[in-house]
Amino acid sequence: MKIESYAFTGEGMTRVYENEKWMVGIKNWKPANDIKGIDCLERHNRTDELFVLISGKCTLLYANEEENGLKIEKVEMEPFKVYNIPATLWHNTITCQDTKLILIEDSSTSMENSDIYELSEEQVRFIQDKLY
């Protein structure tokens, strides 16, 4: 037996470690997570997701459903703090090119038990002009 290590320097996210219970991924900047490319939110319906900012800057967007639609808010991540995204909470990340995040979630989390919410032009403008 030996100690293993994992790294990822590419664009976007990849699962670097996975077993039958949980998964660890590394998420780097990609155009869809840039403030100019943000166009959706996602939610995982059965599982929480944890994020840790390692370097760069990351704004966590999140939204709760209200009578008038989604109320979109943000949290500016601080390095080395653990942020929990509870199951069913709409969310996404806005990152810059030097951003590196660690994410941890149940290994069963997939698009089969998750949803994507396409943001309207008005919602995108609100995020770009008011939140970011």
Rank of each mutant, 00 (worst) to 15 (best):
H91E: 09
A87G: 00
Y132F: 15
L41T: 01
D39G: 15
R15D: 15
I102V: 10
V124M: 06
I35W: 09
G12N: 01
E105Y: 07
E73L: 00
I102A: 05
N45L: 10
M111T: 14
T59E: 13
N64Y: 13
N19R: 05
I26M: 04
E78P: 01
E20L: 09
V52N: 05
Y132C: 12
N84S: 12
E4H: 12
K57L: 10
K74W: 00
D115V: 14
L50N: 09
A63C: 01
K100L: 07
Y62P: 09
T14G: 11
K36P: 10
G56F: 03
E42G: 05
Q123K: 03
I26S: 02
N68S: 10
I54T: 06
E121D: 14
E67Q: 07
K30E: 13
V82Q: 03
C96V: 13
R46W: 14
M23S: 08
E11Q: 09
L50V: 08
Y17S: 12
M111Q: 13
N28Y: 03
K27C: 13
G69M: 00
E76R: 14
N113Q: 00
E121Q: 14
L61C: 04
N113S: 07
R43S: 10
Q128K: 08
Y6N: 14
K81V: 13
L53Y: 00
W22P: 15
L119S: 02
R125F: 11
K30Q: 14
I54M: 08
G25I: 01
D115M: 08
V75T: 06
E20W: 10
E122W: 04
I127N: 02
K81C: 15
V82S: 03
I26A: 00
I35M: 12
S107N: 06
E78A: 08
D98V: 03
K74E: 03
M77V: 04
G69S: 02
Y132T: 08
Y132M: 14
L101E: 00
E121K: 15
Y6C: 02
M23Y: 09
S55N: 07
S108D: 15
G10C: 03
I85M: 04
N68E: 14
G10Q: 06
N19T: 05
E42C: 08
G37V: 04
K21Y: 13
L53Q: 00
T88M: 05
N68R: 15
S55M: 02
I35H: 09
N84I: 15
K30V: 13
S107R: 05
Q123N: 03
D34L: 02
K81T: 11
S108L: 11
D39A: 11
R46K: 14
W22C: 12
V24L: 07
Y132N: 13
P31C: 06
I26W: 02
T109K: 09
I127S: 06
A63D: 01
K100S: 07
E105W: 11
T99S: 06
P86M: 08
D34M: 03
D34T: 03
N68C: 09
I54N: 06
Y6P: 10
K57N: 06
S120P: 07
M77D: 04
A63S: 02
C58T: 12
T93Y: 14
E67I: 11
N92I: 08
K100I: 08
L101D: 07
H44R: 08
E49G: 02
K30A: 14
